[in-house]
Amino acid sequence: MTEVRERTSKGVTAIYRHPLLVRATHWVNALCLLVLLLSGLQILNAHPAFYWGEVSHFDRPFAAIEATTAANGDLKGQLTVAGARLDTTGVLGASKSGGDQLQARAFPSWATLPGYLDLGAGRRWHFAFAWVLVINGLIYLGFALGTGRTRAMLKPTREELRGLGRSVLDHLRLRFAHGEEARDYNILQKLAYLAVIFGLLPLMLLTGLVMSPAMYARLPVLADLFGGRQSARTIHFLVASGLVSFFVVHVAMVIAAGPVNEMRSILTGWFVIRREKP
Rank of each mutant, 00 (worst) to 15 (best):
R274Q: 09
H236G: 01
A240P: 02
A256E: 10
T234P: 00
V272N: 07
A256H: 13
N261F: 10
R233A: 02
G242E: 08
A240R: 09
W270C: 12
F237R: 06
S241Q: 12
A232N: 05
A252I: 13
F246P: 05
V244Y: 02
S265R: 07
I266F: 06
V260A: 02
A257M: 13
Q230D: 04
V254E: 11
V249R: 00
L243E: 11
S245I: 14
L238S: 02
L243I: 15
M263T: 14
H236S: 01
G242P: 11
H250L: 08
L238D: 02
L267C: 06
V248I: 13
M253A: 05
E262P: 05
R264P: 03
Q230R: 09
T234K: 00
S231H: 06
V251G: 00
M263G: 05
I235M: 03
S231G: 05
V272Y: 13
S265H: 13
T268C: 01
S231Q: 05
M253I: 12
M263W: 14
T234F: 09
H236K: 02
G242H: 06
A240S: 13
G242F: 03
V254F: 04
V244N: 03
A256Q: 12
F246G: 05
V251H: 00
L243C: 01
N261Y: 08
V254W: 11
S245Q: 13
E262V: 12
R275W: 08
A256V: 04
H236Y: 09
P259R: 15
R274Y: 11
Q230Y: 07
L267E: 06
A240F: 13
F247P: 04
G242I: 02
V244D: 02
L238Y: 10
S245Y: 14
V244E: 01
